[in-house]
């Protein structure tokens, strides 16, 4: 909890996206299907749009603020509620003022416009209550607790990202994949999002992983998938930790993209009982010098197997095989 040098209301501020309209060239309009945004996940999936050529997305917003508390305590005047849409990758920042609905000023509504050329991947949408406090205008007195995500390409509004899995023949693919033609899969963490490449030179591998087929095949597929996920988590962790930006005073910074998300997720298992920032500093120090990097490997492996749900997959496979045996002997 950070300390503020002025009074702030304690009640919550919430934000909801209530409708999304896409505008294309020549006045073309499309209202995004309600399946394109989720109040539970707090995600808008603009990839669901039917017209691929949309240029702007207008998001209708509704925010609730602790109006009664603000009114009764009386510390605050010149109340303004603004929605802020940002994306790190493009340094985009769009601010929209919301207007109060009704006389109690509890609900504020408005529209924020996302211009497609200004965004690449995922924008963050938050709402802030701004007021004059102790004679100082422009003070942020409250903010929404959980941001919304506006995903420019996803077609399902989910917060957790789906891993990109592509199938490709390693023997005939891009030059860099050819030396790996004996490997069933390859995790590529160098791009905007990590990608798993499945080698189609292994006949039947794709079908196995996709879980189509007999009971035995789907059991094996399940196991294979969790193994693959372990590889992915291990690879993304190492990529994220190996590519940190370091402040002048030696403090490592959490990367702004998926690398940061991965670290936030895994560090509590790698260095338990510490804040993410502390854990990051610790892991970075061990990797870059003080010689205990090797000792950390089991913990990284543990964090990866946990994420990949290996114990669960293994348990289910063992039980599944028992059941198949019983069926065979019955």
């Amino acid at each position: 909890m950070r300390a503020y040098p002025y009074a702030r209301p304690s009640g919550p501020v919430t934000l909801r996206v209530t409708a999304v309209r896409l505008n294309g060239p020549d006045e073309a309009r499309e209202d995004l299907d309600t399946k394109g945004y989720s109040v539970v996940e707090q995600v808008v999936a603009l990839g669901r749009a039917e017209r691929p050529d949309w240029e702007t997305a207008r998001l209708k917003l509704s925010a609730t603020v602790p109006a009664r508390e603000i009114e009764t305590k009386g510390h605050w005047s010149d109340l303004t509620v603004v929605a802020v849409l940002t994306e790190k990758a493009t340094n985009a920042r769009t601010v929209a003022r919301l207007e109060p609905e009704g006389s109690d000023k509890r609900e504020w509504t408005g529209t924020v416009t996302l211009a497609r050329p200004d965004h690449l991947d995922r924008a963050t949408l938050s709402v802030h209550v701004v007021a004059t406090v102790d004679g100082v205008p422009g003070r942020i007195i409250a903010s929404s607790e959980r941001d919304w995500m506006v995903d420019v390409t996803a077609d399902v509004p989910l917060r957790d990202r789906q891993l990109d899995v592509v199938t490709v023949s390693f023997a005939r693919a891009a030059e860099w994949l050819r030396p790996f033609r004996d490997a069933p899969w390859m995790v590529d963490t160098s791009g905007r999002m990590p990608t798993v490449r499945l080698n189609t030179d292994f006949e039947g591998l794709t079908a196995l992983v996709q879980g189509a087929g007999t009971k035995v095949e789907s059991l094996v597929g399940e196991m294979l998938l969790s193994q693959l996920c372990t590889d992915v988590w291990t690879a993304v962790f190492h990529t994220a930790i190996g590519d940190l930006e370091i402040e002048d005073d030696g403090t490592p910074l959490l990367p702004p993209d998926w690398r940061g998300e991965v670290l936030r997720e895994m560090l509590p298992d790698v260095v338990p009982g510490r804040s993410v920032e502390d854990a990051l500093r610790e892991v970075h120090a061990r990797r870059t010098g003080d010689g205990t990097w090797a000792e950390l490997q089991p913990r990284i492996h543990y964090a990866a197997t946990r994420r990949a749900e290996v114990p669960k997959a293994l348990g289910e496979t063992v039980r599944g095989i028992e059941r198949l045996d019983q069926e065979a002997t019955a």
Binding site: V82, V95, D118, R139, I140
Partner: peptide, 13 residues
């Protein structure tokens, strides 16, 4: 603590 966007508005992009 201070919302620059409110005390110094930018023109709409």
């Amino acid at each position: 603590t201070l919302m620059y966007d409110v005390v110094a508005q930018d023109s709409e992009r």
